[in-house]
């Protein structure tokens, strides 16, 4: 008789014995050896820490994940805004036209004015 956790193996042939038979005796199908049921055992199962995420806990934790939208990716350039005259503008590029052409540059000013240029 060998027990590991809740599993009982037959000591002669190593076969897994049925767990619930109603009686106290566990009979092995292969070799016929009778083993005594060792009785109930308590097993503790722990869930992985990431199994139940809590939104509040995530906000307080040291590691935070940002969505792509939140990240500020625009760069700054010394360009005069045609509308309000501010010296600096934000810009970003997107490859909207064919790969042969250059990227389209989108300019944005603090006043809200936006314009874009191709090549």
């Amino acid at each position: 008789m060998s027990t590991v956790g809740t599993l009982v193996f037959c000591s002669d042939c190593g076969n897994l014995l049925d767990s619930v038979t109603g009686t106290d005796r566990l009979e092995c199908e292969m070799c016929g050896t009778v083993t005594k049921d060792p009785g109930n055992k308590t097993v503790t199962t722990q869930s992985a820490p990431s199994a139940f995420p809590s939104a509040l806990r995530l906000k307080k934790s040291a590691v935070q994940s940002l969505a792509t939208e939140d990240i500020q990716t625009e760069a700054e350039i010394k360009q005069t805004c045609p509308e309000c005259g501010r010296e600096k503008m934000w810009f970003y590029t997107l490859q909207l036209r064919s790969a042969d052409e250059g990227a389209t540059v989108f300019y944005r000013c603090e006043c809200g004015y936006r314009f874009n240029t191709n090549n």
Partner: peptide, 11 residues
């Protein structure tokens, strides 16, 4: 092989 051996091998 028997069940015990498989069990030992896996865990």
């Amino acid at each position: 092989t028997n069940d015990r051996e498989i069990f030992d091998g896996l865990l």
